[in-house]
Write a protein that binds this DNA or RNA. Structure first.
Lengths: 233, 233
DNA sequence: TTGCAAACCAAGCGCTTGCTTGGTAGCTTC
DNA sequence: GAAGCTACCAAGCAAGCGCTTGGTTTGCAA
């Protein structure tokens, strides 16, 4: 087996900086609009999603940020810590967004729909959230990092679970835990085939899934799902 | 980017052998019950599924087979060809099994159920099929190999599509292509959480999914899905 | 008995990988 | 204006990777 998962050293967290202004170099306070650390994080997230963790080299990430590979380790202690940071940030941000989206709705079923739409946004949205990484690259994390991220993941999942339980009488008759797992399969799997620029909108996709889990319930938009449409590309 | 996907050389296919009898070494005709090539294939499939393609080294595979890493290349030209061979064999075998399972049923909905059960079998069954690899490790294949495997994958998918179209009036009102993609998400995703040794049987899981895609239809076994059950571990 | 091919070993090559080290440029602070 | 900090470069190391090479063992066929 390829020896992954090194032991953790001292956690790195360069002091936050203030000023702006763009230079050839990102020095102490003349940072880019997005700080150097954030730019590394974004580049890493994008590359991890697009090509996978193992297929992405630290040299790739450094190149897109515009620095040398060694300089990455000024911001992060290891490549794995970079993955953990991406996962941590992504799941924290999305738990927040999801909760806000749910609270904006009154009905139980409408809340489930809001959660669903929010999750699809996190996967396909223009903000380029890397939510799928939590599933697809889970085993690229070492056990210690897994345990740490799992705490955030559980918080995210508990929001889902209570929303599903609250709407249980309007959903397909099924244990909420199983329903959630099936739902996650559908949303995560959509990363492999759904193309945001295609003919199927994210709202329409949300409706299709709602049709499955809440049969007979009008789901708001696009009530009768038109047949014979294609989603390709 | 990590330089994968080398060019193809001459395809290797050692002549098939006949006799049996176990020795310390697998020579021309005194092969193990499963030929050496098959044992390599099985070991590779198992390791690819368990730890991922990138995390599996050729030394790992060789060790579980009981040979040295260099000897692997007597059977396969490259590690990627090994992955391709696994995918090819798996999708060919499962297309066959699935078609047989479907033809054993008369009704359109029963056929869909048979396909579904067959796919779940391929993912979780005791035969240890590596069906999930086709999704999870798809991008580990180079473009050329992808094109070759895609032919088999398309055959598999077309069986699904025609079954779904035939049963369309008894399924959730939705384009069959989209329904298939959502279904595949549920089945493939189950690899991440479903445990065959748990309290939820594969038949019961099949029923839960059928409940979603064919609401109001009695699905054969286990008609009213009991609530409040847990599937964990 | 010799010839031959398949199956494998032993050794290691060349390359890429994540990461380290020692030093420097630019900015802030006192 | 010196100290001190962050951000970065330049160079390269050790380890692990897929894969190659040359030779040996084994069984079978002629």
């Amino acid at each position: 087996m390829a020896p992954n998962h090194k032991v953790r050293r001292t956690p790195k967290a360069p002091r936050p900086r203030s000023s702006l202004a763009q230079r050839t170099r990102n020095t102490a306070s003349t940072a880019s609009p997005a700080s150097a650390r954030d730019r590394v994080l974004r580049a890493a997230a994008h590359s991890f999603v697009a090509h996978g963790y193992a297929q992405t080299t630290v040299r790739d990430i450094a190149r897109t940020v515009g620095i040398l590979s060694g300089s990455l380790f000024h911001h992060f202690d290891s490549k794995e810590e970079l993955l953990e940071a991406v996962m941590t940030e992504v799941s924290a941000r999305n738990t927040e967004r999801m909760q806000a989206a749910a609270l904006a709705e009154a009905g139980t079923l409408e809340r489930v729909r809001a959660l669903l739409r929010s999750e699809l946004d996190a996967i396909h949205g223009e903000t380029g959230e890397a939510m799928t990484l939590l599933v697809t690259e889970w085993r690229s994390l070492g056990p210690a990092a897994q345990a740490r991220v799992l705490v955030l993941r559980d918080a995210y999942e508990s929001v889902w679970l209570s929303a599903l339980q609250a709407a249980a009488d309007r959903l397909a008759p099924m244990d909420s835990f199983i329903l959630r797992r099936l739902l996650q399969g559908m949303t995560a799997g959509s990363a492999h085939w759904y193309r945001p620029r295609g003919t199927l909108s994210l709202d329409a996709l949300t409706d299709r899934i709602m049709t499955l889990i809440a049969p007979g319930a009008a789901t708001g938009h696009d009530k009768l799902a038109p047949r014979g449409r294609r989603a390709r590309a």
